[in-house]
Design a protein around this nucleic acid. Structure first.
Length: 258
DNA sequence: ATGGTGGAACGTCCA
């Protein structure tokens, strides 16, 4: 099973990139974040033409998540827990695999309302999974977590120590979530990768300077991570014309769905 | 503390 997660930063602004990703990479499952489109305007036809089923939960201008799959969904849930009306979570079952796709809040400076909203979101996700699932199931939690895990996951740990995305409180929240029995597939399979970033700010020539962060993850339950063979961050997608500020993260599992 | 760029939607928020 080939699995991709990508913060597309507007599905309508990235239509051509999306089509190219589907045809070139041909993932079995694709999770998207920041689709930024209402459900009634979601471009279902792109997926149908490419041979995918698709489920989505969006809103006007901000947030929005979607999951596309070559296999039909056996279950579908939106808004897994209270997020003040923001469309940030969606879950499907594909055969015997549960896929949770989430767009975690970016947060804000320490002590701000957004900072606490972000920390609460991590706690709620952890509680939701503990209550509704088990890490003994085949479970994938993926998306844009807006937190870098290790020092090697940011371009300048000292400079960013008190910035959103690398504060101790945020990293602790991510670690607690992973600690329920999930495995950070990219880190597990690429222990020697130097600065394996998944996001670069549009501002200040950040990509050219390689001022990035690893904030997108594919987390799998221990039962599923046994099958993980390969995980790659597709950096060239940030160098394209009109790119998203995030790149696709690809994971291959030696597991056939049918 | 501010500014840098991009998307949505058309003034200003969000990232």
């Amino acid at each position: 099973m080939k699995f991709i997660t990508w913060n597309i930063n507007s599905i309508r602004a990235r239509t051509e990139h999306l089509k190219a990703l589907l045809s070139e990479k041909s993932p079995d499952v694709l999770c998207l974040q920041e689709t930024k489109v209402r459900d009634e305007e979601f471009p279902v036809e792109i997926f149908e033409k490419a041979g995918y089923y698709v489920a989505f939960s969006g809103q006007k201008a901000y947030n929005g998540v979607a999951i596309a799959s070559k296999f039909p969904f056996k279950g579908l849930k939106k808004d897994l827990f209270d997020t003040n009306g923001q469309k940030r979570t969606i879950e499907v079952a594909i055969e015997n695999v549960t896929v949770i796709n989430a767009y975690f809040p970016r947060g804000g400076e320490r002590g701000s309302e957004k900072f606490f909203y972000k920390l609460e979101f991590f706690q709620k996700m952890k509680d939701y999974i503990s209550k509704n699932h088990s890490v003994d199931e085949l479970l994938l939690l993926c998306g844009d977590f807006n937190v870098a895990r290790f020092e090697n996951d940011v371009w300048d740990p000292e400079l960013l120590r008190n910035e959103p995305g690398f504060m101790k409180e945020e990293r602790d929240a991510l670690e607690r979530l992973i600690g329920i029995g999930l495995s950070d597939i990219f880190a597990e399979l690429n222990p020697a990768a130097k600065h394996p970033f998944t996001w670069w700010d549009y501002r200040g020539g950040a990509f050219k300077r390689n001022h990035g962060m690893r904030i997108d993850y594919i987390l799998s339950s221990h039962t599923l991570s046994e099958y993980a063979k390969e995980c790659t961050a597709e950096r060239e997608w940030r160098a394209k014309e009109k790119p998203s500020d995030h790149i696709p993260l690809v994971a291959n599992f030696e597991l056939s769905m049918i």
